[in-house]
Amino acid sequence: MPPRSYTLKEIREKGQPPGLKERRNEEHWAGRLYARSLSPFLTWISLRIGFSPNQLTYLMILSGIGAGVAFGVGTGLVSAIVGALLVQLYLVLDCTDGEVARITGRTSITGVYLDRLGHYFSEVAVVIGLGFRAEAQFDLPWGQGGWIMLGLAGALGVALIKAETDNVVVARAKSGLPADPPGGDRALRPTSPWLALARQAASLLKFHRIIGAVELSLLILVAAVLDQVLGLPDLPNGLFAEYVEPGPLSYFGSPVEWTVTRGLLVAVAAVAVLQTVLHFVSIVASRRLK
């Protein structure tokens, strides 16, 4: 029996029910802004071909990992553009698999598991790709793996933040409690007024978004453009080689050669580590584990 043909109107009505775009902490801002407008077209094609929701999720995972590989194998604009486009495809596929599942009634626990795992793989891959990209820009002095290690540290932070969130549900399930704590948004707030104020300030600053795959891919592209314009990757002796004495910008007595991409990596790693600690404190100090 051939796959049923759906109109775009039917896809939007069944695949994007009311309230979908307004889901707190579930719907990405880019999904609300444009991805949910593009995904029905890919959903239409997927339904015509006969893709299952899980097959689309696997494609989403491959797109996210592929983006990390694209960022890591080059230092120029082409690799940055390819990586950014693959992340956009990852985002649209992340919308499409759920739409196909809702339209065909093929929602499953496996699909939820694969979707969550796909976010882990993809966001970690982009940060690791940034580390390899920064490593390849110059030969000295971190040409021995230092920038890659920094990327791995940032990727570990990204994974831990997601694990901290997901393990709230695991802990509640093992304790016989419902996945969502009573009290709605109030349960997410730390019981300490000072911690609650700090959490609100961090939320307003939104500095945590720098480690998200969509935002980071765009920042990597911007960094690549700036490096190209400033000619930083093409300087044979590095931007600071003649001017920097050993000190804060040095590594084992050798001047560190900086680019916009490398500066971005340092910021990503710092935010990932800081956010890991802050997120843990926010969870433990809230009512989510009660």
Rank of each mutant, 00 (worst) to 15 (best):
H279K: 14
R133G: 05
G98A: 09
G76T: 10
G154N: 08
S203N: 05
L264I: 02
I45P: 00
L114Y: 10
G247P: 01
G183I: 08
A67E: 14
G19L: 10
S122Y: 07
K9I: 03
V169R: 13
L85Y: 05
G50Y: 14
A196S: 15
I103L: 05
L8G: 05
E242I: 01
I211V: 11
A155R: 04
D115Q: 08
R4D: 06
R102I: 05
L33G: 00
P248R: 13
K9T: 03
L195V: 09
G72E: 14
V222A: 10
E99S: 01
L232E: 06
A201G: 04
F51L: 06
L160N: 05
R288C: 08
D166F: 13
G76Y: 13
V127A: 04
R288P: 00
P2A: 14
G64I: 06
L226N: 00
N167E: 12
N167P: 01
G83Y: 13
G76L: 03
N167H: 13
L91T: 12
G184P: 03
V92G: 02
A134S: 12
H119R: 11
R287W: 09
Y251K: 02
T7D: 04
C95R: 11
I148G: 00
V225L: 15
G83F: 12
P190Q: 12
I283A: 07
A179L: 15
L38E: 05
Y243K: 11
N54Q: 12
S108T: 04
S37Q: 11
E257Q: 14
P40I: 09
G64D: 02
P181E: 14
G154P: 04
F252P: 00
V214I: 15
G111R: 04
T7L: 12
K14M: 14
S63F: 09
K9V: 03
S217G: 04
G183S: 03
A241R: 14
E135T: 00
A67L: 11
Y113S: 03
L264H: 02
A269Q: 09
V82S: 06
E242L: 05
K14Q: 14
G98M: 13
V127M: 10
L114H: 02
K290G: 01
L38H: 01
L219N: 01
A155L: 12
V127C: 02
V158M: 11
G212A: 07
T75R: 06
I210M: 10
L239D: 01
Y34L: 13
R288W: 11
L278T: 10
R116A: 02
G98P: 06
S5F: 12
L114A: 01
I45V: 09
K162Q: 09
G183T: 14
G212W: 10
A213N: 13
F280C: 10
F207E: 10
V273I: 13
L150P: 00
V158D: 01
D234R: 07
G176D: 06
K290D: 13
R106V: 01
A67H: 07
M149Q: 08
P233C: 07
L230M: 15
I148V: 13
V256K: 07
A153Q: 11
D139R: 08
R209D: 09
T7H: 11
A134H: 03
T96A: 08
D227F: 08
E242S: 08
A153N: 00
L150E: 02
G253N: 10
L232W: 15
E10S: 00
S286Y: 07
P236K: 15
A202Y: 03
R116P: 00
R287G: 00
L33A: 07
E123K: 01
A136F: 03
A173T: 04
S37F: 05
G50S: 14
G154K: 15
V170T: 04
